Each structure stands twice: as C-alpha cells, then as structure tokens.
Amino acid sequence: MSDRKLTEDKFDNRLTKFAPFISPNPVTSFNPVQRYPKIDKTSFISPFSSVIGDVRIKDNVYVAPNAAIRADEGTPFYIDSNTNLQDGVILHGLLKQFVTVKDKAYSIYIGNNVSVGHDALIHGPCYLGNHTFIGFKAIVYNAIIGKGSFVSYNAVITNGVRIAPNRFVPPGADIDTQEKADRLRRVTEEEREFAREVQRVNQEFPASYKALLRYSANEKQNANILN
C-alpha cells in the first residue's frame, strides 16, 4: 500500500472518530427543557469542537477545532453570519444573566463578520457587535463591545463596561471600569485592515473544509470500489 493511501486512510478515520459533539443541553433543575443547536447548513463545525444547547449559528460561520460553545447554563447563544471562532475559543454564560438585542434576551450575542482569536474566552452575559475583532487569549465577560472595535491579545474586559464602536483595546489591558473604557482611542485604518484580512481568510474556510470532507469521503468510496 502506498504512503499516500496510508495517509488518506488515517485522515479519513480520524475525521470519523473525532466528529464534533453537537448536542442538546442536559436536563437540570435550572434548565429543565432540552434545546438543540440550530446550525445553518453553510457553516462548518470542526472536529474536536462542541456545540451544546440553545445555540443559533447563522450562515457561513467557521468554528475551528477545540472550540467549546456550551449553552448548558446561561442560554441562549446567537452567532451571526460570516463569524469565525478560532481554535480553543470558549463560549459559556452565567445562569439568568442576559444582554438584550431587539427586545430579546441572550446570554451571548455575537454579530456578523466577527473574529474571535485563538484561546479567547467569551463569557455571558456579553455582546460582540458586528465587525469586532477579539485577539488571542482575550477575555470578554459581562461586557458590551461596540461595532468595529478591536480587542488585542491578552486583554480583559469585564464588570459591565460598554466599549463604544470602533475603539481599540491595547494588548494586555484590563478594562474593568467605564472610565477606562471611555478613554480608549479609535481604531486606526491599519488595525481595521488587519481585522478585514482575518475575516477574508476565515470566510473561505466553511466551504473549503466541506469540500475537503467530501473529497475524503469520495476517495474512500472509490478505494472500496477498486478493492
């Protein structure tokens, strides 16, 4: 057997073994009704990742490996179109604590064209406006991030603060008062372009990974026919 065939077989077996965990929430005293995720068919949920409970994922969303979207305590979650949640991102929320968007309560609401970088923690109650960028290992908890804002790596935003639209949060910043939030400068065009480029790259992934999985399945079927 060729090295290429061995590699393809191993690749296909791993994809089957490590499919994403997509499940309703468990029945508990505080969430007694099971609710299933609703995921648009054009989105892609990677192997090793989890989507649990009342989670709505709109079109062309990319969820990278090892992401955890867990609406088993705080609920519901909403993730709008063309958003990407990168490797190791965690979404979780506190029980019965909400943000309100268009007269509806959410534990976590993420707008469209949002990028959430590797290992970031998004903990409800919180809101991420359209076109926001959340950097590596940043923490957003009990906060509202305005449209087009740029949160740098290792930054922490909490204590109910509201970040105005198009504001820049520096690397490692601890934004835990409204006074600190109000002093943030505006996003530069260079920073905005960086966020746009991250979006451009990640918006290709849902369709590309779906094509890759179809290719792998077809190759396996063809191999079986030939054998």
Rank of each mutant, 00 (worst) to 15 (best):
122 I>C: 05
134 I>M: 12
32 P>W: 06
35 R>Q: 08
200 R>L: 12
202 N>P: 04
5 K>C: 06
142 N>M: 04
167 R>Y: 12
7 T>R: 09
127 Y>P: 03
202 N>L: 13
102 K>I: 00
106 Y>A: 01
22 I>S: 07
118 H>C: 10
190 E>F: 02
187 V>T: 02
4 R>M: 10
78 Y>V: 03
70 R>N: 11
39 I>P: 02
46 S>A: 13
119 D>M: 14
129 G>M: 13
41 K>P: 04
76 P>D: 06
172 G>Y: 10
214 R>N: 10
53 G>V: 03
30 F>V: 08
191 E>K: 01
192 R>G: 07
87 D>P: 00
109 Y>H: 07
105 A>W: 00
44 F>Y: 15
82 N>T: 01
84 N>D: 11
227 N>L: 01
37 P>L: 06
18 F>L: 09
99 V>W: 02
161 V>E: 14
53 G>Y: 03
218 N>T: 05
101 V>H: 00
11 F>L: 11
102 K>M: 09
104 K>S: 13
111 G>E: 08
223 A>N: 12
65 P>M: 06
227 N>G: 07
154 N>A: 14
19 A>V: 05
217 A>S: 15
125 P>W: 15
73 E>P: 00
74 G>F: 04
190 E>T: 01
219 E>F: 10
97 Q>S: 06
227 N>P: 00
141 Y>Q: 14
40 D>T: 01
119 D>F: 10
214 R>A: 09
150 F>S: 05
56 R>A: 03
116 V>E: 03
19 A>L: 14
86 Q>D: 07
226 L>W: 09
8 E>P: 01
122 I>L: 09
130 N>K: 08
82 N>V: 02
89 V>W: 05
89 V>K: 11
184 L>Y: 03
217 A>R: 15
218 N>M: 11
10 K>W: 02
25 N>L: 05
190 E>V: 01
30 F>I: 10
164 A>K: 15
203 Q>G: 08
198 V>E: 13
206 P>T: 01
137 K>I: 00
24 P>A: 10
215 Y>M: 10
130 N>G: 08
171 P>Q: 09
14 R>W: 11
85 L>F: 05
170 P>L: 14
13 N>S: 14
116 V>Y: 07
150 F>Y: 15
112 N>I: 00
159 N>L: 08
214 R>T: 05
43 S>H: 07
87 D>V: 04
86 Q>F: 05
126 C>S: 13
184 L>S: 02
139 I>F: 13
184 L>N: 05
115 S>G: 04
216 S>Y: 09
21 F>S: 07
169 V>I: 15
116 V>H: 08
70 R>H: 08
204 E>M: 15
147 K>R: 14
178 Q>W: 03
151 V>R: 09
190 E>Q: 09
174 D>Y: 15
49 S>F: 01
50 S>C: 04
220 K>L: 11
143 A>R: 04
87 D>R: 02
64 A>M: 03
117 G>N: 11
